[in-house]
C-alpha cells in the first residue's frame, strides 16, 4: 500500500515513479476471440503527470517482470500510448486524463461548474453530457442519461423516467 500511495502522490505532483502502480488485465484468458489460438493479449496502464511524454515502457514491464519472472520473454509485440497519443485517439482525454477532469471534492458535485443543473450551459438549448458532468468518469452512460433528461424537460417538456429493466 505504501508503494501505491507514494507512486500516486509523486505522480500527481509531477514526477514519474521508478515503480509505478500498474493496472493490468489479460482479456485473452477469458475471451479466446482476442488472439490467435493459444496466444494471449494483455492490457496495462500506469498514471503519469498530465501531458507527460516520458516513456514508461521499461518501468511498467519491469514491474510486471518483478511479479512474473519470464514475462518479457513472452512478448511478441507491443503498442504504447503516452498522454499525447491518448488525446489524439480521443480528444476528450485532455493531457491523457481519461476521467474527463479531476474528481476531487470541489469537482465531485460541481463538475463542470457550480450551477443549478450541471448539464445546462449558459446558452439556451446547449448541454454538456460528457464525463465532465456528474457522476463522472467510467463506462456507465449516466452522465448522458441525466443530461438528456434535463434537456428533454427544458426544451420539449418531456418528463422521462427510467424504464423498468429488461
Amino acid at each position: 500500500m505504501e508503494e501505491i500511495v507514494e507512486a500516486e502522490k509523486s505522480t500527481a505532483a509531477g514526477a514519474h515513479p521508478q515503480q509505478p502502480f500498474v493496472i493490468l488485465a489479460q482479456p485473452g484468458l477469458f475471451d479466446p476471440s482476442r488472439a490467435p489460438s493459444g496466444k494471449h493479449t494483455a492490457w496495462a496502464y500506469c498514471h503519469v503527470p498530465n501531458g507527460s511524454t516520458v516513456d514508461m515502457t521499461t518501468r511498467i514491464e519491469n514491474q510486471v517482470e518483478r511479479f512474473a519472472p519470464g514475462f518479457k520473454e513472452r512478448i511478441l509485440g507491443r503498442h504504447v500510448m503516452n498522454t499525447v497519443d491518448m488525446e489524439k485517439y480521443n480528444p476528450n482525454y485532455i493531457g491523457g486524463d481519461i476521467n474527463g477532469g479531476i474528481i476531487d471534492i470541489r469537482q465531485l458535485f460541481t463538475r463542470p461548474a457550480l450551477r443549478w443543473s450541471p448539464y445546462k450551459t449558459s446558452a439556451k438549448g446547449i448541454y454538456l453530457c460528457s464525463s465532465s458532468t456528474p457522476p463522472g468518469g467510467g463506462v456507465h452512460g449516466m452522465c448522458g442519461y441525466h443530461a438528456a433528461k434535463r434537456a428533454m424537460k427544458d426544451v420539449f417538456g418531456i418528463n422521462a423516467r427510467l424504464p423498468s429493466p429488461k
Binding site: Q26, G28, L29, N50, I102
Partner: peptide, 26 residues
C-alpha cells in the same frame, strides 16, 4: 468557470501480444 475546470493525471498505456499468459508467481 469552464476555463477554471481542472484536469487530472494522465495515463501511459501498453498493449502486448503474448506467446503465453503472464507467468505471475502468485
Amino acid at each position: 468557470q469552464l476555463n477554471h475546470y481542472r484536469y487530472g493525471m494522465g495515463v501511459y498505456k501498453i498493449d502486448w501480444a503474448l506467446a503465453e499468459p503472464i507467468p505471475f508467481i502468485a
